[in-house]
Design a protein around this nucleic acid. Structure first.
Length: 448
DNA sequence: TCTGGGGTCCTAGGACCC
DNA sequence: TCTGGGGTCCTAGGACCC
């Protein structure tokens, strides 16, 4: 357990709505709902003005419309704009420490112990206050709530304590005092099902949970979840801040505006989804062995059917064929509300692409030549490489499109395209790496 | 006007192998 | 006659997070 409050959790306040209010001054001070505005849409983010009327994330937009007054704005998400704002903030965090763990487009942990900082409570408080001011200035007024503590758990709870625009440093040694009065649902991993099971046993607060014996928790929740709850209730958390995580699966799904029972239409939708998945796999340089079909019925019951191939693939046609075979065994007579396609069991490269091993002109790298510590490319006879700017769009032969996260001392750190709502992997290159080149802004940079 | 879309992790049962 | 165990892989479903 750490003895200093050296982990920060940064959480941008109602970020999607905040970006919209920044870009459209007429929306400032008004309730704003960002989400799917079709018949089956849900709220992605409600501005604090809208929350005053009871609008919440994940609520059907239809319900939010009932609650919010006339004059409320209902907007479709503009992910490119949110991503740009996210990039700016992540860049600021990267200046604090090399160890930054993005959790999502609007949230990250920072390990200050990996930087050079005064880690006293006063020092961390001043640092966090300065960070908040820089975030607001650099984003044009989007605010962030910051928590600091001796663990990820405590930092996250801290950032939640005084939202929006909050700053909470949990003084080392006072973790349990701060946590015990809070509802158990404050703890990460305590969702509706866990909360209901705890409620039935009279457990409402973190203090209540800390009083439950380990045998009961294991009995109620099984090995993994029971053990986790026992530790979290005691503020016992030593999870490290991890800068980069391996992607485990890539998927795409669509909820139809009305249920579809026609097999040929479902087949067409499946092709579209498989093409998206295959394209994203290729961009990421990944391929996978298991193809999973997901189907949801009118009553929201959801089934999955999967098949595992001998060789990994990133080929949309192969994925489509596998998914179509799985769909053939699914009863669709009552219509499907949702269809999804996913690929898991991922490896770095398509191993069934034997030609790329033999053909030096193939556009895909051979497995032996990957980016981890391999030799640098041939020395360039052109002048020194470009000057990389934070936030600049770049392209890399192996990793596809990305943007500059930080640079200096002859190195440039690039975050590559990830799934739409989450940041992708981070790689560091020599600034003159010829595989790295400035990119035209991708097609999603247009307005709205 | 009921319930998005992208993920992660865990459990449990059966097949299969030694 | 009667029913070993452990490990791994695969499949399906569910809880949870943002």
């Amino acid at each position: 357990m750490r003895t200093t409050a050296s982990i920060l959790h940064v959480d941008l306040d109602a970020m999607f709505a905040g970006v919209e209010q920044r870009d459209k001054p007429s929306l400032r001070g008004r309730p704003v709902i960002v989400g799917g505005i079709g018949g089956r849409g849900v709220v992605a983010t409600a501005s604090y003005e809208a929350r005053a009327y009871g609008a919440r994330s994940a609520m059907p937009v239809a319900e939010a419309r009932r609650r919010c007054p006339p004059g409320t704005a209902y907007l479709t998400p503009r992910f490119p704009a949110y991503r740009r704002t996210s990039q700016v903030v992540m860049g600021l965090l990267a200046e604090l420490s090399p160890l930054v763990e993005p959790v999502s487009i609007d949230e990250a942990y920072v390990d200050l112990a990996a930087g050079d900082h005064d880690l006293t409570v006063a020092g961390v408080t001043a640092l966090a206050a300065g960070l908040k001011a820089r975030i607001a200035a650099a984003t044009g007024g989007v605010t962030g709530s910051v928590g600091a503590g001796t663990s990820k758990l405590v930092a996250k709870i801290g950032s939640d304590l005084h939202k929006p625009d909050g700053l909470t440093v949990v003084v080392p040694g006072t973790e349990r005092d701060r946590m015990y009065p809070l509802p158990v649902t404050t703890l990460p991993g305590v969702g509706p099902a866990t909360a209901e099971r705890l409620r039935r046993s009279g457990v409402h607060t973190v203090a209540d949970l800390a009083a439950v014996g380990p045998a009961d928790l294991l009995d109620w929740f099984g090995q993994a979840h029971g053990t986790a709850l026992f530790r979290l209730a005691r503020a016992d958390d030593n999870r490290p801040v991890v800068a980069e995580r391996e992607t485990k699966s890539v998927s795409a799904e669509e909820t139809f505006s009305t249920d579809i029972a026609d097999r040929s239409r479902l087949g067409t939708e499946l092709d579209l989804l498989a093409t998206q998945v295959g394209g994203r796999l290729r961009t990421a340089g990944l391929s996978g062995r298991t193809v999973t079909l997901k189907a949801r019925y009118f009553d929201f019951t959801t089934i999955t059917r999967s098949t595992t191939r001998t060789q990994p693939t990133d080929d949309p046609q192969v994925i489509t064929q596998a998914a179509r075979r799985l769909l053939a065994d699914v009863d669709v007579t009552g219509g499907l509300r949702l269809l999804g396609v996913g690929v898991s069991g991922l490896t770095e490269f398509a191993q069934d692409d034997l030609l790329s091993l033999l053909d030096p002109a193939a556009d895909r790298p051979a497995p032996a030549g990957d980016d981890s510590g391999g030799p640098e490319p041939a020395v360039s006879d052109t002048p020194a490489g470009p000057q990389w700017r934070t936030g600049q769009d770049v392209c890399h032969d192996e990793h596809g499109p990305g943007w500059v996260w930080g640079s200096g001392r002859g190195r440039v750190t690039v975050r590559f395209e990830g799934p739409r709502t989450a940041p992708g992997p981070v790689r560091t290159f020599a600034a003159d790496d010829r595989r790295l080149r400035p990119a035209e802004p991708p097609d999603w940079t247009g307005p709205g």
